[in-house]
Design a protein around this nucleic acid. Structure first.
Lengths: 155, 155
DNA sequence: TATTGTTATACTCTATAACTATA
DNA sequence: TATAGTTATAGAGTATAACAATA
């Protein structure tokens, strides 16, 4: 590439792409678009289970941390804890989650999955896994490993 | 890999990961998270320009197609055209976009950037490009090319 | 005083149905 | 009758400030 450096100064400047946006913009655009489409695809497959992405996200966080406070869930999900109240309320009403007052600090609510919640989470993970398989289907096993490593490097 | 196929049947089954979620779920999760974070990061750098992501998206689509109808913009962005009205209204009020009745089909609105809109779009692309550079900064040139190709294969 | 959870409010985006004007 | 744009409405997500209970 850069076949014809007309001057030394010109050669030092990254070659501007002739057709499209620069490579890093292409990557960012693809990441945003693929990520967004996958998020809504997951929403679609979760819908028959009566699960919205945010609810699924909370249940996953609770399962991963097992025993987090509401503030910790919010921090892990990158949203303000006040935005979790309604979601946790609804999950609790459905019997999938429960709040327990932390005995050592009675301001905190420890959140835990119920057995029914654990079952529902397993179902959600199953359909999400199938959707993830379809997403990565065009890639070979080697390419999948490459992609995962590259994404991990960015994240 | 799959070093110890205990039986023929076991060897035919993909090795379940011991620690975390399967690879395709890792990829999907990383894609959704990175994509979402980048989207909100772009929103943050666009905010000082008085541009929201959706407005920036519309202006980009108009620049790419140059002369699209509102329905075509919606199709390209994957949203219902009714969800574009308010956005185009606002961009038109600011003098960055204009609607022109299509003479050959007076139902259609041709949307076009004004000179001021083109300037604003250039500014937006500039800050978005800088943000994309930061996103891909951890990667080498070779890795960036790999990542772009892998993402293109998925998309 | 500071922190946890809660409530209330506002704003953006999305989805849907009904309306109009053109075809 | 079909299509392009528009309007109105409702729901979900997010952000912010103020408040009560607890530390």
């Amino acid at each position: 590439m850069t076949k014809k450096p007309e001057t030394a100064a010109a050669a030092a400047i990254p070659v501007p792409p002739r057709d499209g946006p620069p490579e890093e913009v292409q990557i960012a655009t693809l990441l945003a678009r693929i990520g967004g489409l996958h998020t809504s695809a997951v929403a679609t497959v979760l819908a028959p289970l009566d699960l919205r992405p945010k609810q699924f996200g909370v249940m996953n966080m609770v399962a991963l941390a097992d025993g987090p406070s509401q503030g910790e869930i919010g921090a892990a999900m990158g949203i303000d804890p006040s935005g979790l109240i309604a979601t946790i309320d609804e999950l609790e009403q459905r019997g999938w989650l429960e709040r327990r007052r932390d005995p050592s600090d009675r301001r905190r609510n420890i959140v835990a999955l119920t057995p029914a919640g654990r079952t529902k989470l397993t179902e959600g993970r199953e359909v999400a896994r199938r959707r993830a398989q379809e997403l990565t289907a065009p890639l070979s096993a080697k390419e999948r490993r490459q992609l995962r490593d590259l994404l991990a490097k960015i994240a």
